[in-house]
Design a protein around this nucleic acid. Structure first.
Lengths: 349, 349
DNA sequence: CGTCTTTATGCAACTAGTTGCACAAGGGGT
DNA sequence: ACCCCTTGTGCAACTAGTTGCATAAAGACG
């Protein structure tokens, strides 16, 4: 009834460093030193302090430590989500998995926020910085004239931007090198299958990665002496993907293959094509982007471009931790996005 | 070159309450009172202080406030993710959306953690509580003899458990009432369509909601004088869903309809059936659970059960905030899970 | 013109750790 | 036996706000 275990649990108030110091018969300074492996304490004293702390179930208060050190051991991830798109892209789940894998073992936490637009996102960073709530931030979806890197730099908040590495960006950029490689491969693949009328369904034009991929798509086709059958922009929503697909299928010379800016849209596109009575890949070949797990299990299995979102997430976490003063080896991202050929692409009719 | 704007941005160190007090010609106590609408300050002084703070770009340090008040204005969401399942279920994205919608406007943050199993999850709560990093936690996936509610109660950490409301649980449970209603409706729907051999693909047996739904499935069939064609348990992974579907399709008397414990598995099941040469719903009817956005866009569109994950998330956030001392009206969850009939179900052959 | 009351403001202690510096104790060398 | 040096430990100040209590200022009233 009165084991140390029980008494620890029962005491409403959390134990403080003073309680531990009293229990071990030392000063609070000694307790602090024992926990931080600094100063000079005998191994015996150290043991005794650690035992007392374990007995009381004490860990240093994150808040007090943060106040003193001006480091919260918390990083921010802000996800921008158009109000009309209900669920966020599973892409983010993958990214978070990659980030967490690096943060958790080092005692860092990930503070997640959802915002509607860039203005709200900027206001949030201002608040997070002013309140000192986080040590750094991961910026997703780099866009042309992105206001966030200069903003965060001005706020003195470490940050990494996900996307194509860019030499003179205000904040370090993390992403697979040669971002266009996957698109290039995909176009090659389709052309080799005999496709000549290939369309591209892009994301919002202001996002850099989407613009880049679209440009690579057009350049690669040009190298083959072909012109795009069509290039449509969407807001990444499922509804827009379906609408774009229907528009493509209604063309006088309809494309025999469509490449989508992400897997979610590709899946919707396949649905739209099938609903229109077309067979994939018999009548229409489809290529996605991201290599989400679900693509492997659909019928037909989705041909897509793997850009290792998790790995990029891990690299971003490392880069950010390094900026926060942690001694962390960087993750080498020497690979490039790669085409994963599955069943949604086939010979042109 | 030297606007207040610029000088604010340039000064490396964040301004403190002292700087604001000095700028406004008052004491730090007055600044604190101005920001917290407590004590008695003249409106004129208040204005002057607020202006000075705005000028300097100052907000109270979240860390210092947290130390003094013993409240961090941060809640934890721990997602348990089997190591072999790569991406987390989009279900969580919906849940997070619902939570964030309530937390953000009140200045609360969501600390997200991913863990491999229950042991790791418990250890994490112990650490979060000992370090005082969060004010409360959202517990997902209630399981039989769940160790987490008593643990969090012992740690003195407010919590809400998502799932079927349960009167004498150690922590409040938030979820739609009459959890079985959706399954009940779905079985009715299938039986009306003439199905007699209906199978159920369940999640891990130790999860309460999955066990409950499976039980309701069996009871409802029994009321109709039918027996389940089969009931299989999986770990919620895509691979397991495909394996279960293949097993069902290989039966001597194969089922004419399959109900899955979530949409992700249902989508994989449709893929597996189509790959086996069956048509959905012509040869096999499929019902999912969750009403993920993607289900609306597939071909065939997925018949599923809507359990309003976002709304439940919002209710959970409110319930937790109320426990943390915030004055928040509770969200009424008088609705029940409802069947959404789309195209993946049809008459039995 | 002094005293009482009301209102506004500041002082100082407090939250829970961390750390520079001073000091004490013990051992070894001369 | 004395001194010095090494090692271990504690005091007190510091991080950035918040708050109870004291006090000052100003107006009202006798």
């Amino acid at each position: 009834m009165n084991t140390p275990e029980a008494s620890r649990r029962d005491s409403g108030a959390r134990p403080t460093i003073k309680a531990v110091a009293a229990a071990a018969g030392v000063s609070t300074a000694a307790v602090s030193q024992a926990f931080n492996a600094k100063g000079r304490i005998s191994e015996a004293t150290r043991r005794r302090i650690l035992d007392a702390a374990a007995e009381l179930g004490w860990s240093p208060s994150a808040t007090a430590t943060a106040l003193r050190s001006a480091r919260t051991r918390t990083l921010a991830l802000v996800v921008r989500r158009p109000t009309d798109v209900l669920g966020a892209d599973p892409h983010f789940t993958e990214l978070i998995t990659g980030l967490e894998g690096e943060l958790a073992p080092r005692g860092y936490g990930l503070l997640l926020h959802l915002v509607a637009d860039v203005a709200e996102e900027s206001a949030l960073y201002e608040r997070l910085a002013a309140e000192g709530r986080v040590d750094g931030a991961v910026l997703t979806d780099a866009r042309a004239d992105d206001p966030r890197p200069p903003l965060l730099r001005g706020l003195g908040l470490p940050a990494v931007l996900l996307g194509a590495p860019h030499p003179d960006a205000p904040v370090p950029t993390v992403g697979l090198g040669n971002q266009g490689a996957g698109i290039h491969e995909a176009v090659d693949h389709l052309v080799e299958l005999g496709h000549r009328r290939i369309a591209y369904v892009s994301g919002p034009g202001e996002l850099l990665h989407t613009g880049l991929r679209r440009a690579v798509f057009e350049e690669t086709l040009l190298l083959k002496g072909l012109a795009p059958a069509a290039v449509l922009s969407t807001d990444f929503s499922e509804a827009a993907a379906v609408a774009a697909t229907e528009e493509l299928l209604g063309m006088a010379q309809r494309p025999t293959a469509v490449m989508y800016a992400n897997d979610s849209m590709a899946v919707c596109g396949i649905g739209a094509a099938q609903r229109a009575g077309l067979r994939v890949p018999g009548d229409l070949s489809v290529v996605g982007y991201d290599n989400l797990p679900i693509g492997h299990w659909l019928h037909p299995r989705l041909t897509t471009v793997d850009q290792q979102v998790q790995r990029v997430g891990a690299a971003a976490a490392r880069a950010l931790l390094a900026q926060c003063g942690e001694k962390v080896p960087p993750v080498a991202l020497d690979e490039r996005p790669r085409l994963v050929v599955r069943e949604s692409t086939g010979p042109a009719r």
